[in-house]
């Protein structure tokens, strides 16, 4: 980390590239000049970056939630009904290979340039991986659990709620993790292309103002949020499940 920062600073100070293209991270190149850290802190203080982060996270959470609900539903249907597997299941594999931003032109035509279009591509970016993961999870519920539950009198929705869902939790968590990553990519692309507010919009602004310090600050924000989500939320979930179930260590 320190090495990378140092190398960056040195390159920035060699004047190999203009300062606006390669801004210094910590120490300004000329008195009162811009630094990434300065812009980052400024952005936090004036609320510019914080506000944008809030907007983006809000959209992300809504889109992601829609994707999770849809993914679980599709996954269940695929695992439950053979004909859904043969039709939708096959289709999902194809859909999954389409980068979600490809949907953007369609989304703009359908929903107009704005929040709805962004939500649409976030949701569609995350839904298919969630579907694939949850259907794998549901399909691979060990039959011994199903049989045990059935001989104890469980069936239908009770069986789904008390056995199929909890038995698929490990698959579902890894699905959430990948879906979250896909959702991030989708929202950044979406906001870059056009929407009021949000980190992607700020990135685009940074580009047009040729202020790479702002762009780099936003990259730092995205990195921090990504790390926090992965370590604090998903890894913790995974660990809790493995501890409770006695999987691994």
């Amino acid at each position: 980390m320190i090495v990378i920062v140092t190398i960056w600073e040195i390159i920035s100070k060699t004047n190999l590239f203009p300062t606006f293209m390669f801004p210094p991270l910590l120490i300004p190149n000329e008195p009162g000049g811009t630094t990434v850290l300065g812009t980052f802190v400024d952005g936090l203080i004036t609320g510019q970056i914080l506000e944008a982060t809030g907007v983006t996270l809000g959209r992300l959470l809504i889109g992601f939630s829609i994707a999770v609900v849809l993914g679980l539903t599709f996954g269940f249907l695929i695992a439950r009904y053979k004909w859904v597997d043969d039709t939708l299941g096959f289709f999902v594999t194809a859909l999954q290979s389409i980068p979600s931003i490809v949907w953007f032109p369609l989304a703009i035509v359908w929903f107009g340039l704005g929040n709805l279009a962004i939500l649409f591509i976030v949701a569609i970016g995350a839904t298919w991986t969630m579907t694939v993961n949850s259907s794998t999870g549901f399909k691979n519920v060990p039959s011994i659990y199903l049989n045990a539950a059935r001989t104890l009198g469980s069936s239908g929705t009770h069986l789904a709620r008390t056995v199929i869902l909890p038995a698929s939790v490990p698959h579902i968590i890894s699905g959430l993790r990948v879906a979250w990553a896909f959702a991030w990519r989708a929202i950044m692309a979406g906001e870059l292309f056009g929407a009021a507010g949000g980190l992607g919009y700020l990135l685009d602004m940074g580009r047009s103002l040729q202020s790479m310090d702002l762009v780099l600050s936003i990259m730092i924000v995205i990195g921090i949020i990504g790390t926090i989500m992965d370590n604090q939320v998903f890894l913790r979930m995974e660990r809790n499940v493995s501890r409770k179930w006695g999987l691994g260590t």
């Binding site: 045990a148 104890l152 909890p166 038995a167 409770k244």
Partner: peptide
């Protein structure tokens, strides 16, 4: 179909790993 008048004890037990002993036994 399966019924609670005929309960099976499986070779691997078939206990639900996400439930503690009490919840497993009270399940049925």
């Amino acid at each position: 179909k399966p019924g609670t008048d005929r309960v099976v004890v499986f070779q691997q037990g078939g206990l639900f790993p996400w439930m503690n002993v009490m919840d497993n036994v009270t399940y049925g």
